[in-house]
Each structure stands twice: as structure tokens, then as C-alpha cells.
Design a protein around this nucleic acid. Structure first.
Lengths: 129, 129, 129, 129
DNA sequence: GTGGTCTAGACCACT
DNA sequence: GTGGTCTAGACCACA
């Protein structure tokens, strides 16, 4: 369920954050669903609870979690999310940069198109007419 | 010419690396063009020469610069670049993730398409048929 | 355990790199084994920590170490190594050059054969038929 | 005739030295043959004369050249070479190290054998019986 | 505790 | 002049 790579350069708490974000974005985790408690998850991943704690706080501050004291943490509904525009601009920028670098590295266009299709951005048949 | 944000969480030397990469990728810097000397750039940006040095070595080891001792650093030709596949896979992954998150944040498709067009990935008329 | 020659023309950090590479190649250091912390080794060798740091990063970027933040540096498994072909060609070239020069200096063939045997390249009895 | 790579990390004067050594070792340059004057070679390679000068001094001190004042530099005969033992030990060491690293990188034995044959170390048929 | 970054200032080799 | 190395000492983020 979780992909944590201790060897990665990325901080562990960030990897936890990314894993949750991905599961929420892809719909594996539904709004108002309860997520494991800090201690539970820490034990399961054999990671320091402080690290999980930090990840949860991060997810809460970014609007992906909400916490009910005494009950635990829950997945927030997309509509509850705050001010997206800043994050959207950030993402657009990474998109542009990544695309430019891919072109520079001579990654074949088809492979990029494949990705676009996979993300449901395009229906089959819209590309490469 | 350079955008360095001392307050950013990103390391200064990484910002320098990214700035150069962007300029090379976008063609602002041409192959075999000389880049400012370590000391020169350090002085211009009021940054410690060692920091610039580190950035330059990074760029060299990633195949964007080559260094001629006694003469300075120069922009490498794209063909001189090494083993891209690992980097390409990384980029594809960030691409996927960014696209998914954009969809989740309900960024209008048109805006994303705009970016694709800008990167010359698609010719006018190929999209939104 | 470590042979560092401060007077050598070779940079100290390179000597550290070479020492570790040799210990890893010869199997003295096993995969996933922890190596001394930057500060520890620096203290032991009475060398500046930054110098050790540089050596460790070099080893990491060449695929001999991996670093786990907060825990330290570890020996990477051979399979984790990246793109060897460039390095292999380099080595083949040094091999050729060294052999040619040895022949020129009239080093007896037997002595060279001795080395080949020692590196397990040849089984006893295969040579000097 | 000369392979000088300004982009290489190796110092230019060292590349000049290596080129001459190789030509002498391989017999392209014969004993007592005259080599180009410092100025001539510098002009031909469009390199600073001081750099060539340094290379020639190095070659002389290592016993590959001898200089006759007013006439120029000449290739020394192998027998004129001094104290080889130190250099031979050096070479043996690089040989060992290179071989070990090649084995570690899983370079196929056959490719290594190929090199040994090419250097006339072995006659055809002596290996892999 | 760990690695990672940065500064200031020094010295060396090469061109 | 150029890059490359090294030291001393400081600060930060992560586990």
C-alpha cells in the first residue's frame, strides 16, 4: 500500500505526504474516510512516529486531511480545499519545465503522448491524426 | 538574467543549476558558449564562490557544462550528454503526477492544452477537435 | 585501515574515494553495511569534515554509497550500480596502456601473468602452456 | 597525429606527454629521432608554448627524451631509461586495480582476454583451453 | 545524532 | 587569469 524508500534522497515525511496525496487524487481514499492513526502507521512502516506526525500536519495544512480531536484524521473533500490557484501555477510551471527538458533530451513525442492519454487528458483518437 | 531567491527552501547551488539548465534547454545559451567564471558570477550574485563552484561541478557531471582548465567553463553540446534514460523516466513520473494533481484541482483542460502547445509538443489544430 | 597521504598529488577526497572503492570491490565492505559518519571519519583521519563529505557524495553519485538521511551512509549493492559501460571502457583503456608500457619497460611476462592469476582472471594451469 | 582534447579533465601537458609516450612505446617514434621543436608543436596544436615546454621537460626527466642544446629534443633509446622498477610497480598496481574493478563491474572475461591478446601478451590459442 | 549547505579565506596547478 | 582543493566554523532539516 505504501511505497517508502529509505534510500531515496527525498525526506521520508515527504514520501508519506506524496503517497497520501496520490491515493486521494486517484480516488483510492474517499472523502471523510479515516486514515490510520499516527502510531499505527508508524508501527506498520517501522518509521519514527514523529516523522508520520510531521507528514499528517503537512497534509492537514495543505487541505488534504482534517483532524477531529479524539477521533483521528480524515480525508478532506476536494471542495474543502483552499486557494488552489497558487498550487496550480506551481504545477503548470513544473509541467512546462518537465516538457521542455523531455524535448531537449529527445524523448520521442509518442511516449509523451502516451502519458497524456493515460491521465485521461485526451480521449483515444484525439492525437497524432 | 538570474533568479536567485536566498529565502527559498531550495539550495542556492541548485537554483543556479536550474537557471543554467533552463537557459541551455531553451537555447538562450548555445553549445561551446563560455559561461561566467566562478568568481565573476559569485561577485555578480554576491554569493560565495564555493557555492557557484558546486553548481558548476554539478552541471558538469550531468553533462551540461564542460570545463577547460585555465580557460573556464563552457556549455556542452546536447550530443555530449550521457545516459538520459534515468532522467527521462524521472521526468515522465513528475509529468504524470503533475497532470493528475492538476485534474484533481479542477484546472480547466484548456489551460493545460495551452501549455502543451507552448512547448511545441502539438501543432495548432491538433487539439480539441 | 585507511591509507591517506597528505603529501600526495592526489586530492585527499579522491584518496578517500579510492580507499572505499577498493574496500567495496574487494568485498571488505559488504552491501548495506554502514560506513563511519562524516564527522567520525573526519576526526579519525584528522581531516576536515567537508573533505570527507565531498568524498561521500562522490561515492554516492557513482553508485557505491547510498545515504539515508538522519542515519548515515551505507554501501550500495552492486546491482544498484548505474550505467557501467562508460567506466568499463575507461578501464579497458588504462589496461591497454598499462600493459603496453609494461612490455616496453621489459617487465618479464611471468610477473604480469602472476597478477592476472591473482585477480582470479585465470585458473592455475591456464597460462604458460 | 596528436589527440588533444581540451575538454578533458586531464591537463593538456599531460596529454602531450601521454601521446609521446604512446608513440614511443608503440614504435612510431624511433630512438634518436628528432621531435618537433617546442614552438613548432605549439603552433601546430595552437597551444601555449609554455604548455609544450612543460611536457618536454617531463618527458626528459622520465627518460623518454634527451635534449641537445641548440639542436632540439630527441627520442631516447629504451636502454637509456633510468630506474624502471618504481614505475613498473606503479603500473602493476594500476593493472591490479583496473582488473579488480572490471571484474566487480561484471565485464565479461572474454573482453578482457581480447585486450590481453591485442597487447601481444599472449599468442592465439594460449587462453581458454 | 545524521547529512546537507553556506561562508570566508587560503593555497595550488594549469594556461 | 582560470578552476580545484582544503580548512574552520556556522546553521539547518530530518530521524
Amino acid at each position: 500500500m505504501f511505497r517508502i524508500d529509505l534510500k531515496s534522497r527525498k525526506a521520508i515525511y515527504e514520501q508519506v505526504v506524496d503517497n497520501f496525496k496520490e491515493m486521494i487524487i486517484s480516488g483510492i481514499l474517499k472523502p471523510d474516510e479515516k486514515v490510520p492513526s499516527v502510531r499505527e502507521l508508524a508501527k506498520e512502516l517501522t518509521i519514527n512516529p514523529n516523522t508520520i506526525q510531521k507528514a499528517y500536519r503537512e497534509l492537514e495544512s495543505r487541505g488534504y486531511f482534517y483532524s477531529v480531536s479524539g477521533l483521528g484524521n480524515f480525508v478532506a473533500a476536494p471542495s474543502d480545499k483552499q486557494d488552489n490557484s497558487a498550487r496550480i501555477n506551481e504545477l503548470k510551471d513544473t509541467l512546462k519545465t518537465a516538457l521542455n527538458e523531455l524535448m531537449y533530451l529527445e524523448c520521442p513525442k509518442e511516449e509523451i503522448m502516451e502519458i497524456l492519454k493515460d491521465t485521461a487528458l485526451m480521449r483515444e483518437g484525439e492525437t497524432e491524426r
